[in-house]
């Protein structure tokens, strides 16, 4: 665990809280893509299936392989799952009437199908758990596309939405730094599937980062995209 990894995780955690706070405070989820949020629940569900493995070790009192890192990961995984499901739940129940569904027009199969095919071809092990893990990595890289499309459609984002987007994009950018650090300091550490997907994910946020910093510098309340 290095400073980049822990900062990335905390930034990721912050992104959920920013979004939940925003939705609760404004009683609205306008400008937030339901499709992107739905994809994040799928990403975490497919990736964190190993929670059952940890749970199995705990209920059989097999603590030999449970380290501090396992406990940290388990705690964070449960938080990420709970937060993402809660966001989807909020957007489909009390905030449904404020949802931007009419403009949330991205076709999810356009990312789901390629990610599934890629996960079946390019994986480290041809096992169900490993393929689902790989699928989640590919899907996370592109899951923000409906949100970006909605942002372009709308032409602007309010302050909290752009902080949320910055936190989500920033977390993966910090993971890139973490991977460089781990590659330099840990023998045999190389996970090219995560590296390539992480790079693609960060690159997708590139334009957004640029406008975010321009906005922060100029002190505007809302982020407006050039038309």
């Amino acid at each position: 665990m290095n400073i980049f990894r822990i900062s990335a995780d905390l930034l990721h955690l912050a992104s959920f809280f920013i979004l939940i706070f925003k939705m609760k405070a404004t009683k609205s989820c306008k400008g937030i893509s339901f499709k992107t949020q739905l994809m994040y629940t799928l990403v975490f569900t497919c990736r964190y299936l190993d929670l059952f493995h940890v749970l199995g070790m705990m209920i059989t009192f097999n603590f030999a392989h449970i380290t501090g890192l396992t406990l940290y990961n388990t705690f964070m995984k449960i938080l990420f799952l709970a937060a993402s499901y809660y966001i989807v739940y909020l957007m489909r129940t009390e905030l449904k009437s404020t949802s931007d569904d009419a403009r949330d027009t991205f076709v999810l199969w356009h990312i789901l199908a390629p990610c599934a095919v890629l996960a079946l071809i390019f994986n480290a092990q041809f096992t169900i758990l490993e393929i689902l893990w790989t699928f989640s990595i590919y899907l996370e890289a592109v899951a923000v596309m409906p949100q970006l499309m909605l942002l372009i459609e709308t032409g602007e984002a309010d302050s909290l939405s752009s902080h949320y987007m910055f936190a989500v994009g920033g977390y993966r950018a910090l993971y890139l730094v973490n991977w460089v650090y781990r590659y330099a300091t840990e023998p045999y550490y190389s996970n090219w599937i995560a590296w390539i997907a992480g790079f693609v994910q960060t690159a997708l946020f590139g334009d957004f980062f640029y406008y975010y910093f321009v906005k922060i510098m100029s002190g505007d309340a809302a982020l407006k995209l050039p038309t």
Binding site: R5, F80, N123, A124, S190, N191, A194
Partner: peptide, 10 residues
Amino acid sequence: TGDYVPHDEL
């Protein structure tokens, strides 16, 4: 595809 890497990240 190289050596298997355990998933110790989030």
